[in-house]
């Protein structure tokens, strides 16, 4: 796995986004074990303390569950993942809509643009 980081934003948040993408897209399944902190650190070339923080933050949100002596796992609670997905989609869609409206696009135009974009990105993840 490789993640390109923007050095002016907190890396633990960027890493969390990365894991959320994996979870929301189903690459990491419900109840699946996450790589250990050290493994993730090595894979992405990040300080292990930072990875630790990402894991703690994901635990706090209930998306990841730490099991004593076994490691960290994606939650088995489907509801939590649903919630996460809708949060993410809300955040990005809202941002997008506001940006487009600020640029003078009408509702219809926005819908058209989205349709077009969806068509040309077909099959790509």
């Amino acid at each position: 796995m490789s993640v390109a980081f923007d050095n002016s934003k907190p890396i633990y948040l960027q890493l969390m986004d990365y894991f959320f993408q994996q979870i929301c897209s189903g690459s990491l399944k419900l109840g699946e074990k996450l790589p250990s902190v050290r493994e993730t650190a090595v894979n992405v070339g990040v300080n292990p303390n930072t990875v630790q923080r990402t894991y703690q933050e994901m635990e706090r949100k209930g998306v990841v569950v730490a099991k004593r002596g076994q490691g960290s796992f994606v939650t088995e609670d489907e509801q939590v993942i649903k919630q996460l997905r809708s949060e993410i989609s809300e955040e990005y869609v809202n941002k997008f809509v506001i940006y487009m409206q600020n640029n003078g696009f009408s509702k219809l135009e926005i819908l058209e643009q989205v349709k077009e974009a969806l068509q040309s990105s077909k099959g790509e993840r």
Binding site: N7, S8, K9, P10, T50
Partner: peptide, 14 residues
């Protein structure tokens, strides 16, 4: 380093 990013939105280079 994370304080630089969080509080000032800066990278070390910035």
């Amino acid at each position: 380093v994370e304080d630089l990013r969080e509080k000032k939105g800066q990278s070390v280079l910035d």
